[in-house]
């Protein structure tokens, strides 16, 4: 099992022939991901990295049975790329791009609701099911196949958690980087739900940060429906109010979206909450014993 992506996913890359797209497509292929081609409008019919290039996502779906797409196009065109993928019938759309205007995402979210698809990101490291499919920019070698699901709004902090889980002798079922923007395709709660329903996942690491109420939402859901131990951490305990901390979505607006408030809610909902990001792996070992 695992969720979202696996070895039989037919993955395409939008923005395939660009610098970022090429580099990461190559890394994904080297990891063993089943990349079946890519899309660059105007370059259809060519070959790139030994795979077919298409003008439209539609064509990639028809000819290669593409069902997962990873997007590396510049921010001004990313909203359009997401909508194209949804309309063409792609089931899992992973948007790596950082810097998409919020008003674009408001429209995109509304549009893609009409289709049977799931958007991960934008502004995220992607999704990986270790030893099966890496759909994103994360370093593959830190992951091990296993039973811990990871959900996070961050990139390198996710790698940190993965590394700790691996070093603690466990592995990962699927790691989902949901992204650091104010509006993301899949919320913390939705990602936790996917992992909670995955028979292969035995424990979940949930990493959040300041801003918004996604973690509180997820925590309340876990309290009612959770069947597996969840370890949680919120980055930004020392962040000042009203300043954007790197991620567009990481800004404290009121008293409810500080790290402290979120951790209090998570604790109250039975999540094994750690104050130190260095304790994520160790806490998971403890949580699984209970």
């Amino acid at each position: 099992m695992s969720v979202l992506v696996n070895k039989s996913s037919n993955v395409i890359v939008q923005g395939f022939t660009g610098k970022e797209g090429s580099f990461h497509a190559e890394q994904m292929i080297a990891y063993g991901t089943n990349v079946v081609g890519g899309v660059t409008p105007g370059k259809g019919g060519q070959k790139h990295l030994d795979k077919a290039v298409f003008n439209t996502v539609q064509e990639a779906v028809e000819k290669e049975g593409a069902d997962v797409s990873v997007i590396f196009v510049p921010p001004a065109f990313s909203g359009d790329a997401i909508m194209e993928a949804a309309e063409a019938g792609i089931k899992v759309i992973v948007c790596i791009t950082e810097g998409i205007p919020v008003q674009d995402m408001v429209k995109v979210k509304e549009y893609i609701q009409k289709f049977d698809c799931r958007l991960i990101g934008p502004n995220c490291p992607g999704v990986i099911t270790p030893e099966e499919a890496k759909v994103g920019i994360m370093p593959g070698f830190i992951h091990r196949k296993g039973s811990i699901g990871i959900v996070s709004r961050s990139g390198t902090l996710t790698y940190e958690a993965v590394d700790q889980v691996t070093k603690a002798g466990m592995g990962q079922s699927t790691c989902i980087g949901i992204g650091g923007d104010p509006i993301v395709g899949t919320t913390t709660k939705e990602a936790v739900q996917l992992l909670m329903n995955d028979p292969e996942t035995e424990g979940i690491v949930m990493i959040g940060e300041i801003g918004g109420n996604m973690e509180a939402d997820a925590a309340n859901w876990i309290k009612e429906h959770g069947t597996k131990p969840v370890v949680g951490f919120i980055a930004g305990q020392t962040a000042p109010k009203g300043r954007t901390m790197g991620h567009a979505g990481a800004i404290i607006g009121g008293e409810d979206d500080t790290a402290e408030a979120k951790m209090r809610i998570m604790e109250a909902c039975g999540i094994h909450t750690v104050k130190s990001p260095a304790q994520i792996g160790a806490m998971m070992v403890e949580a699984l014993k209970k």
């Binding site: 990139g155 650091g180 305990q237 990481a250």
Partner: peptide, 25 residues
Amino acid sequence: MVNGAGLAMATMDIIKLSGGDPANF
């Protein structure tokens, strides 16, 4: 000095837990 926004915030938190106070993000 950190790579990545989430890890940078987490590093500030670690500094606080270690008895210091972060001077920056």
